[in-house]
Amino acid sequence: MAGSGTSHLRDGDDVLLRAERVVVEYPMRGSRQRVRAVSDVSLDIGRGETLGLVGESGCGKSTIGRAILQLPRPNAGSVHYDGVELTALSGRRLRAYRRDIQMVFQDPLSSLNPRQQIGEILADPLRVWKHGTPAERERLVADTLEVVGLDPSATLTRRPHQFSGGQCQRISIARCLVLRPGLLICDEPVSALDVSVQAQVLNLLEDMKARYGLSLLFIAHDLAVVKNISDRVAVMYLGKLCEVGAPEKLYQRPAHPYTDLLLRSIPEPDPSRPLPDADLTAGELPSPADPPSGCRFRTRCPRATQLCAEEEPVMRELGVDHHVACHHPLPTSAVPAAAPTPERTPA
């Protein structure tokens, strides 16, 4: 979009999370200006659904994940979880919902306390929530370790540094799961891992989703990883949402020129395919402190017109489960989206 709008939001009981017109601002160091890291973003996640959120660094995708957790609370907009408006809850009542929404972070080692044993790390959330007796807690911890594929007897009394990155990420996931959350927010959970280990963690997340009926918000910059795990994908650019849709549609027929640019920039693991071309000068991200007027992507967009500078595009429906915020979307019906052809007039 880099635009706004809520036409892509769904109604009904199947929707677990609904974030509407969320705005998150940060003060800028050494100035009275504020940066809008997330600017009027709406998204929803169905029960048992994985929403993949992609975008380049600095687009605000992590910020929206935290805004859902109310850490910090968004400056404007609302977040509904299971029908309850989290943005309107305060103190103790909000705290009760924190248990339901858990987070997995990018760097597994630094998100585990190095001085605690794994058994303590996993039992801590249960103790905080006064769950069962110590014996019951112990059993739940051991069971959960087993479920994420770690041998409890070889794990419980060891400390995080004694494990590999992939194992630490399993432990992080287990720490979330002991509380039986409804929604797991995964912020780049595999980008610090080797490919082989990345596959293990992605498979584990899929298994856990099926086993516990979890919903996932999967935030990542790697489009192939996001496609692998997602039921629905949202593309973000500079604090705005560009395109939302089912992965098959969005990847095969991207409608937003930014989605198209991202997809065309990825070198395919196929030697018969050429290296994606790139315009060396068109690549810089504008500053989020001073975003372009109208559509925020227009400064890098081959299809941009005067309209894009004047009017912010609003999310609209292109087809079943495919929405885009663009004045000049790529054709999605007939042939696969060809190279974006800026309307060229014959000389």
Partner: peptide
């Protein structure tokens, strides 16, 4: 073990 763009969603990855 590498996820590919061409694969459909939820393709089980080899480990």
């Amino acid at each position: 073990s590498t996820p590919r763009l061409a694969d459909p969603p939820h393709t089980r990855l080899a480990v």
